[in-house]
């Protein structure tokens, strides 16, 4: 699992590559703590190369979205692959928070 963090203008971009299994979810939790403590106004999760997530990873997406919601920020997930999408749908994530097919659309949505 690789977690890449970048900043494009005022947008935090977190790209996840590989499998978000239980140990990787712990890594992501630590990284997200630092990122969320800085109160970002805009956050994009690029999930186009995320092949798998279990419930621990999913909780991190819920927590980030909730935190941004509370502080008046915006969060968008993009490129969610088919099988991961199924899990997002089952948990009700995709119904509540915006997900878009491409990174360009995420930038449009959040800018």
């Amino acid at each position: 699992m690789q977690i890449l963090v970048a900043k494009i203008a005022d947008i935090e971009v977190i790209s996840l590559l590989g499998s978000l299994d239980p140990d990787a979810a712990v890594q992501l939790k630590l990284k997200m703590k630092t990122i969320l403590e800085a109160n970002p106004a805009k956050l994009i999760f690029d999930l186009s190369q995320l092949e798998y997530t279990g419930s621990a990873g999913l909780r991190e997406f819920f927590l980030a979205a909730k935190t941004l919601d509370r502080s008046g920020g915006k969060m968008v997930c993009c490129g969610v692959q088919k099988e991961v999408r199924r899990i997002f749908d089952l948990a009700g994530f995709a119904m509540t928070y915006p997900t878009v097919p491409t990174f360009a659309e995420a930038i449009d949505k959040i800018a």
């Binding site: 279990g54 419930s55 909780r59 948990a91 009700g92 119904m95």
Partner: peptide
């Protein structure tokens, strides 16, 4: 319990078992 839309699932583990039962 079924995750309420827009809410972080409260109980650690609860969301996992919910998904297992669905899948």
């Amino acid at each position: 319990s079924e995750p309420a839309h827009g809410k972080v699932p409260e109980k650690e583990g609860g969301l996992g078992i919910f998904l297992v039962k669905k899948l």
